[in-house]
């Protein structure tokens, strides 16, 4: 039998890997990849807690479905923005886009 803690630990590890990616990736596409990892970590947590702590309800699963839907929308827009920026500036590196400072 697997205790709930292991799922939560898995989720935490996955989250921190995603966080590490978000903090260190220079490439905008890999930045989005890291964001997807973070979202998946959250989803695992939601579904696990739903199953272990409140098995009679379906809130965790419903919310995770919503997260998947929103993540799809977010990545679509994010990727199209990257492509559109790439067309103009021939770059996908985040440190090339610092026009908003000062």
């Amino acid at each position: 039998m697997i205790p709930l803690g292991h799922f939560v630990i898995l989720s935490a590890v996955l989250f921190c890997i995603g966080l590490f990616g978000v903090l260190t990736q220079r490439n905008a596409i890999r930045f989005l990849i890291s964001v997807e990892i973070i979202l998946n970590a959250a989803n695992i947590n939601l579904v696990a807690c739903n199953r272990y702590l409140a098995p009679a309800n379906a809130e965790g699963q419903v919310v995770s479905l919503f997260v998947i839907g929103v993540a799809a929308a977010a990545s679509v827009v994010g990727l199209i923005l990257i492509i559109s920026v790439y067309r103009q500036r021939k770059s996908v590196f985040l440190d090339d886009f610092n026009l908003l400072k000062w």
Partner: peptide, 13 residues
């Protein structure tokens, strides 16, 4: 303590 909780006998949703 909840991290040690095991799978409850009831079926999930």
């Amino acid at each position: 303590a909840w991290s040690l909780r095991l799978l409850p006998p009831v079926q999930g949703p």
